[in-house]
Structure formats: structure tokens, C-alpha cells
Amino acid sequence: MRSAEITAEPAEARQLSLSFLRPSRSAMIGTLAVLAFLVLWQIAPTMGWVNGRFTSRPTEVLLAAIDIFQNDDFLYHARISLTEFVAGFALAIVVSVPLGVLLGTSKIARHLIDPPLMALYIAPTLVLLPIMVIWLGIDMAPKIAVVFLGAVFPIVLNTMAGMSEADPKFLRMARSFGATKFDIFTRVLVPGSLPALLTGLRLAVGRAVLGVIVGELFVSQAGIGYQLNLYGSAMRIDRLLVYALIVSAFGYTLTVIVRSVENKVRDWRSK
């Protein structure tokens, strides 16, 4: 009997990769490009190509960073911004996941709520910031609201899509084994829509970070955005850049984390 096929190695056997010890060509080029940019940035003001007052220099930014971490109440401002981010984001998850599930499983609900939802997803929800300030004052509340508004729609829409676009062949297979509606929901729809939910979360991170910063730039008494505004109007570009970089690093890290989970989950999907 022929059964060579079984002994064949699986299509994508995982191997321990040591490739990071030998940097790839693309990583080297990327690093070189960044270095070139930093050098150019450093010497451009000295050479008189740009006005150093507006551009600062990498070395100045580095010194400003050290200074800020030591004595600029950095942790205080970071905590405020982080609180706004976490509160708004958590609220968005609590609202959007159940809503997305409802819309994904009920066609009528979907048709009913989809148009206003799409409109708010497409429209710049940040325009609601001034009205949030009227409603909620100038403390953390309007920023939490803006973070919420930014994050909620991508999560709802992606969860909904993940639920409603469940592969019909899985549904038929489950039915053939006598699965109940509840079985199909918990064992097919929910795990099947997990990657879409994570995509929603990833898109929401960017919008939420933007929400915090725009909210604080617009009106605030503390927070990273407040500091940005402060150093911007004082023309302390070095310090401004430090805070901007911190926000970038935060958004970047969070996005990378969610993306890596997402990729792991997506790996399961057959191609």
C-alpha cells in the first residue's frame, strides 16, 4: 500500500530561525536611511540650509529627552493622557463588541444601523470635539469621549463584518453535525471573527491616540497634548519633538502588539 503522503513533512513546518543574527539587506538599507536622515538633520542648520530654530537637531532632542524624563513632571502628564486613552478605549470595546456581534448576526439590525454607522465611521468624528467640550467640560471627559468615538466605529464595523461574512461552508458543515444556533455562534462565528475583531482594534488604536492628542491640543490643563501645545507656542522644538516621538512610540508599540496577535490568529486560517 502506498502511503508516502503521510510521512511527508507538513506544508509549513516551523523552524527556529536565527536569521536575525545576519541582518537582511532591507534592514540594513532602512537603518542607513534613518542614519542618513539624522546626519542630514544634524548638519543642515549648521550649513545654513534650514533655520535651526524651527528644526532643532537630533543631539538637542536627545538632551531635551533626558531633561524631560528627569524633571518635567513627565509621568504626571503621561498618566493623564494614558488614563484618557485607556478609559475611552475600554469604553469603546465594551460598547462595540456586543454591538458588532448583534449587527453581524441580525440582518435587519445591520440594515437598520449600518447607514448612520458608516456615516460616522467615514466622517471625521473629531469635529465633534468642540461639542463634546460644551457637553462635558474641559477635563478628561471630552477627551475620553473623543477617544471613544474614534475607536468605537472601526471595532463595530470589523466585528460585524467578521460575523456576517462567516464562511458558509463552515456553517453547512456545523449544521450537518446537528449544531444548534448557539453552537454555531460560539464555536464557528466567534472564533471565526476574531481576526476581524483584532483588525478593528488595530485600526482603533491609531484613531484613539489621535483622539487623545487632538483633544488635549484643543483644550486641556495637563497631558502630553498640553505639553505639545506649551512647547509649540514657546518654540521649544526640541522638547516638542520629544513629546511627539513619545506619542509615536506609544502608538507604534501598541499597533505592533495588536498586529502580531492578529497575524498569529490569522495564521490559523487556511489559504
Partner: peptide, 25 residues
């Protein structure tokens, strides 16, 4: 019990998890 044309295996379950699926249902 049906064996479908496309394997219709749930991608998030292991081989064992997939074989258990019908039993669970």
C-alpha cells in the same frame, strides 16, 4: 455524517479539535 468536498476544517482548531467538533455538536 458528511465528508465535504473542501475539507471545511475549522482553521483555528487543531486536527484533534476538528475531529472532536462533530462529537461536541
Amino acid at each position: 455524517a458528511v465528508v465535504f468536498q473542501e475539507a471545511s476544517l475549522l482553521p483555528w482548531r487543531s486536527v484533534r479539535g476538528n475531529v472532536k467538533f462533530g462529537l461536541e455538536m
